[in-house]
Structure formats: C-alpha cells, structure tokens
C-alpha cells in the first residue's frame, strides 16, 4: 500500500454501527495493514448520533477523521449521512441506508426532518442508497441491517470477499451466522 484509507461509519445509537466497525477492523488486519478504529461509548449509545472512524494503511497515526477526510461514508440512516457530508473527501463515496429515524427535535415538533436528502447528497457526491432494512428482513432479521451495509461497503475496499465472510464468521454469534451471511450477500449484490 499506499495512503491511509479513511472510512466513517455513522448511524443512530442501537443500530449496530460498533459491530460494523469491528468487522471492518477485523477484516483489514487480516491483510496485514496498520489500523485504528475510534468509537465513542456511553451517552452516544442512547439513541444519539454515533460516529465511528476506521483508518488503515501502512502506518496510521490519528484514529479520527477530519472534515474533508473520509474516502467512504457508510451511513445507517439518511439524516446521519447528511450530517456527515462535510467529512467526505472530494471524490469520496457515500453509501447510505434509506431508513429514516426521527430525532427528538423532530419528534417534539421543534424542527423538521429535512426533505429529499438522497437527492441533495447525490447532487454533490457519488451516492449509493439502498433499503437495508428490507434486505435485512429478507435475510431473516431486521437486526442484520449492519451486516447488509457491511456487504454494500465491501466492494469499496481492496479486501477480498472471503476475508469479509471469514471475519463475520469469527465476529458474530454462531446461531446468527446464516442470517448474517445472507445479509452480507444481499448488501454485496447491491454495490
């Protein structure tokens, strides 16, 4: 390699973004790269915005990604993709789940959920949007949204498919392996 590659994973607390970043981290070390994964636990898990950074390459210093520094933004929710937009590197790629989850200021009526987010993102960036929730349901569990999205992202990396599947096998509990493998394939096929 090569320059450090920076992948930002954003979503809502409870959606399983941490597992996604751990699968990604686990996959890249199998290829011998240096890697740093930065998570924030605690308050942000309680339904708030959750941001995880994964950076890998020959030698990685900062565990965080700055504005304008993300090669890929993997978003578990539309509004969170929009919020993360300033972090995208020029020419970077946004992969987004079409799911919408109203944040509390929208629920209380203090603000409105922005309209046509997908359109706005596409106007300034290269965007692939999928309905990961439906695909997860097809795979057998709505909880597998994160692995559907991992599948979608897999093609944005130089990590071979077998490495991804092997990492998923060693990361998720055995009884959910079939669902997760199917979820990965469904996401992968959409990329």
């Amino acid at each position: 390699m090569k320059e450090t590659r920076s992948i930002m994973i954003v979503g809502v607390g409870g959606q399983g973004t941490l597992l996604a970043s751990r699968i990604l981290g686990g996959a890249v070390i199998r290829l011998g790269y240096d890697v740093k994964v930065s998570e924030v636990h605690g308050m942000s898990q309680r339904g708030g915005s959750v941001v995880t950074y994964v950076r890998y390459g020959d030698r990685v210093y900062s565990p965080i990604i700055d504005r304008g520094g993300a090669d890929v933004i993997l978003a578990f929710e539309l509004l969170e993709a929009y919020r993360a937009l300033p972090w995208l590197k020029p020419g970077g790629k946004i992969l987004v789940n079409r799911q919408k989850m109203d944040p509390m200021p929208v629920i209380t009526g203090a603000m409105q959920y922005p309209e046509r987010i997908e359109e706005k993102l596409s106007a300034v960036a290269d965007v692939t949007a999928i309905d990961a929730l439906a695909l997860a349901e097809e795979a057998g569990s709505i909880k597998a949204v994160n692995v559907v999205l991992i599948g979608l992202m897999a093609k944005q990396t130089d990590i071979p498919k077998e490495v991804w599947l092997d990492t998923i096998r060693t990361t998720v509990p055995p009884k959910f392996l079939d669902v997760n493998r199917k979820a990965f394939e469904l996401g992968y096929a959409k990329a």
Partner: peptide, 9 residues
Amino acid sequence: IPGRPPVMC
C-alpha cells in the same frame, strides 16, 4: 440539520 441528542431508550 436537526441534532440527534441521546435519548432514553
């Protein structure tokens, strides 16, 4: 953009 503060589950 509306913020997404943490909330009770």
